[in-house]
């Protein structure tokens, strides 16, 4: 069997295969619902209702999408330059840790001064965490996939150590959690009385900035060139190592902001359960978005909707919440295959 490129794919092919991928995801979901003894369409209905059925549900979905926008952007930026950052989880926790270090009373400034400083520090922390594997890759040729993955485990243990040591909340009744942020360090809500916080707004701004960098700057062009063909980029005089390191700083910084946004916008303190795998889910978000920054926003809302909807569906219909992870994984695999099939056809040789 071999793949044969299609010179001018028709509209049916361009739209048909992605539609099939969505259909396949629904089919898997239906099978899973049936296996749990539930009626598929009522399960889908409950997921949709839980994700977007009320004002509360929509805001909950947008809240859940916020960290995914940041981690999704982090992955999209890195993957575009073929820097395989699988460590957004660690970078997120680095950003969250700096947020509670600075925001629990160390700096007693008004919010207008404090918030930008904490956000910048969180981004810097995330950037530095990815800079280490990026340097190992560029200087020593150590594969960053494995190092970034392994750093996730190291970082979570490090955070756990801090929460049982120097960062432990003295008022926390012995729980491994940090003290709460001072009010000046909290991200305000976008609309008073509703739970959605400015982290979401910051995410949208980040997406726009990434889009500008990627499409309107020389750096964006260089990042793309390095991703498409490293040798050719080198031959064309692009400083490949420097571009990879800058990409790492941007990517890690975005993931660090995810930690800042979660702590300062939503939780108010740090625990080891801050992220239920936002770093890993960011990879799926980025791939579903085809690495496009605005696509990341849409994909993050979509994936967040499935998770939020599945949570509420699970309470009502008794189908395990892990159906959400399975739907998202199926959607990812089906979609990457579908995108390929819009441009190639499989021929027997």
């Amino acid at each position: 069997m071999r793949l044969e490129p299609i010179a001018a794919p028709g509209l049916a092919r361009t739209l048909g295969f992605p539609a099939l991928a969505i259909l396949a995801t629904f089919a898997v979901g239906a099978g899973l619902a049936l296996a749990a003894g539930a009626e598929p369409f009522s399960v889908f209905g409950l997921i949709l209702q839980g994700a977007a059925g009320s004002r509360f549900a929509i805001l909950e979905t947008l809240n859940r999408a916020t960290p995914l926008i940041f981690t999704g952007l982090a992955v999209a930026v890195a993957f575009r330059a073929r820097l395989w950052n699988i460590g957004a989880e660690a970078q997120l926790y680095a950003g969250a840790t700096i947020t509670v270090v600075l925001g629990t009373g160390l700096l007693l400034w008004p919010a207008a001064a404090l918030l930008p400083v904490i956000a910048a520090a969180a981004a810097l922390a995330g950037a530095l965490v990815l800079l280490v594997p990026a340097l190992l890759k560029t200087k020593l040729g150590v594969d960053e996939v494995v190092t970034t993955l392994l750093f996730n485990f190291v970082m979570l243990l490090f955070v756990s150590m801090l929460l049982e040591g120097p960062l432990k909340d003295p008022m926390g009744m012995g729980w491994p959690q940090s003290a709460r942020l001072i009010p000046e360090a909290r991200l305000p809500r976008i609309v008073e009385g509703l739970r959605l916080h400015w982290g979401f707004g910051l995410g949208l701004i980040a997406a726009a900035v990434v889009w500008v960098i990627q499409t309107r700057t020389t750096l964006g062009y260089a990042m793309r060139a390095v991703g498409e063909n490293r040798q050719a980029a080198e031959f064309a005089g692009i400083p490949v190592t420097r571009v990879i390191l800058i990409t790492a700083l941007i990517s890690g910084g975005l993931a660090g902001l995810a930690g800042f946004s979660e702590v300062a916008g939503l939780r108010g303190n740090l625990t080891t359960t801050l992220s239920p795998g936002f770093g890993y889910t960011g990879i799926i978000v980025a791939m579903l978005a085809l690495l496009h920054p605005f696509g990341v926003v849409a994909a993050a809302v979509f994936v967040a909707g499935i998770f939020v909807g599945a949570d509420s569906m699970s309470r009502a219909a008794g189908v395990p919440t892990y159906i959400a992870d399975m739907l998202v994984a199926t959607a990812l695999l089906a979609m990457v295959l579908a995108i390929l099939l819009t441009r190639f056809r499989l021929r027997r040789s």
């Binding site: 899973l32 990879i283 395990p320 892990y322 992870d325 399975m326 994984a329 199926t330 990457v336």
Partner: peptide
């Protein structure tokens, strides 16, 4: 990379489900 991480997520969540 992408397929491997997708398979990891799928296999893990299928087991938990």
């Amino acid at each position: 990379h992408v397929v491997g991480l997708g398979v990891t997520l799928l296999a893990t969540s299928a087991s938990y489900y």
